[in-house]
Amino acid sequence: MAVLSLLSAQGLSIKFNGLSVLSDVSFDVPKGQVRALIGPNGAGKTTLVGLLSGRLLPSSGTVHFDGQNVTNWPSHKRIVQGMGYTFQITSIFETLRVHENVALAARRHQMRDTLVNEVVEWALVRVGLAEYVNDIAGDLSYGHQRLLEIAMGLAQQPKLLILDEPTQGLTESDIEAFKALIDDLRGEVTVLLIEHNMDVVMQAADFVTVLESGQVLFEGVPSDVKASALVRAAYLGGANAKA
């Protein structure tokens, strides 16, 4: 089972100062799926993503990625292996041009400069930033910076793209564009989407994992999640999970 999935977490636990933040979290993401990871604030989503991407090390449990046990790998090695990661709080090279931002992501796996430029152009067209290629990244609007972040993820041409709250702070029209982008990527790349916005989750995800108080509360297709009383209860009587 674990062999068929691209990403597999088994029994992940972590404690900070003796306080258990995640306990025994297990889930598998099969190749090609768009998986959403949701949960109320403080459920441990950010911590879990930190463990998957290698920014934190678990107290116990394992992470397998693309057939390898990557539990103790540093983050840069996981990324070379094919993980792409976008930050929850926009993290770009503000003083550098948009082109260079994406080129840094592409150069790691493309040896020839012409190929790098092709990848950059492809990624920027994908997110709709092609016209800003020569702008200084820090001068872009907030929404465009979020898109640049995703373009940097795409330019790594990852097997798995981890998107940490990609729609946070985006306008309605930006969110529509984002949903279209995810639809566009479906099948091409496996996506792990950490998301607050239920609309996005319901429309974009193939499968949803719900985290609550550091444990997996529920797993299922979006419609099952919507119907689940457990999930509604976790979200303060379902206030956020608008139908």
């Binding site: 090695k77 993290s91 090279f93 790691r108």
Partner: peptide, 24 residues
């Protein structure tokens, strides 16, 4: 060179550079 461009990236945003897969 490519090497130098990574150095500049480290100066501008070390964490991001690491998360682009470079061994900072």
């Amino acid at each position: 060179s490519r090497f130098g461009k990574v150095l500049i990236a480290i100066r501008e945003n070390e964490e991001r550079t690491q998360m682009l897969g470079y061994n900072v």
